[in-house]
């Protein structure tokens, strides 16, 4: 039987969580409602008014503003970077975790140290590189800086790979497995949770990337969702109803991905926690 003090303490905890949930979720709800509100109603009534009547005009307005293309560009960019980052990060992390070569550890820590460098520091040299090679405002400019692995991914994978029992790898080697065989048959199956987690982090990071696409592209051809959303605001009008429709559309794929793959994130946390 639960004691009264424990009941009170549980109630307090749940109350705190409820308040936190409300603070977190209300902005999303407000954004969703605003996306169904006409511009006229939004400008002439309280921003908290319910849409009356609800309208899809903001969503059709997105189509007119070329938002569909921005979605396709962003999805394609994210897919390419995801594939590239996973492939190259896995290869690099395995090398740092399991291969022996001179300067391995020093090289690893130098690479990880680049995590401390703010992205804004590398924007200018990267831009100049793209401009000099004629890649400015192209799809390659969006993906090349990010598709060859990331220090964060390599660090995370390297630590995870080191927890895989060496006996498994030695057994595979005895069977005649090459390095690629070991990675494909032993390491990757054992690393599913962390790979899914990294994949989700990469997808979210690249989907929400704003500064680099803003700098390296111009116009509507290679605009991504973040830049397209910001571009909905004109010089003299915030166009908030359109912006809310855009953010609603932009967030749906991320929510779907998280719901579909969330359990893998939990299991990766559990596994690393037990270790």
């Amino acid at each position: 039987m639960t004691s009264p003090s424990r009941t009170m303490s549980n109630a307090a905890v749940y109350l705190g969580l409820a308040v936190g949930a409300v603070i977190t979720l209300v902005p999303f709800g407000l954004g969703l409602l605003t996306s169904f509100t006409s511009a006229r109603q939004f400008n002439t009534e309280s921003p908290l008014s319910l849409p009356s009547p609800p309208t899809l005009a903001n969503y059709t307005g997105l189509a007119d503003a070329g938002f569909g293309r921005a979605l396709v560009v962003t999805a394609l960019m994210t897919a390419v970077i995801l594939l590239g980052q996973l492939v190259f990060s896995v290869l690099a992390a395995y090398a740092f975790a399991r291969l022996e070569f001179p300067g391995r550890d020093a090289l690893f820590w130098v690479y990880v140290a680049t995590l401390m460098v703010p992205a804004t520091v590398t924007v200018v040299p990267l831009y100049l590189m793209m401009a000099e090679t004629g890649l400015r405002n192209t799809f390659w400019a969006l993906v090349l800086p990010f598709m060859f692995g990331s220090p964060y991914a390599i660090f995370l994978l390297r630590e995870y790979f080191r927890t895989i029992p060496n006996d498994l790898i030695r057994a595979a080697r005895v069977d005649g497995a090459s390095t690629l065989d070991v990675i494909v048959h032993v390491v990757l199956p054992a690393s599913r949770p962390i790979l899914v987690t990294l994949g989700l982090i990469t997808v979210v990071t690249q989907w929400n990337n704003f500064m680099w696409p803003l700098v390296i592209t111009s116009g509507s051809q290679w605009r991504v969702v973040t830049v397209a959303t910001a571009g909905l605001q004109s010089r003299y009008d915030g166009q908030w109803t359109l912006v809310m429709a855009a953010t609603t559309v932009a967030i749906v794929p991320l929510i779907v991905a998280f719901v579909a793959l969330g359990r893998h994130i939990v299991s990766s946390i559990v596994v690393t926690g037990l270790k």
Binding site: Y127, L128, A131, R136, N137, L214, V215, S218, G219, S220, V227, A230, G231, L232, Q233, S234, R235
Partner: peptide
């Protein structure tokens, strides 16, 4: 015609003019 959002217009114009694009 190339439409660039006002919010970022002059920032990107500056970099594009400097970069020759």
């Amino acid at each position: 015609v190339n439409v660039v959002a006002y919010k970022s217009y002059f920032d990107t114009l500056r970099t594009d003019v400097a970069g020759g694009g």
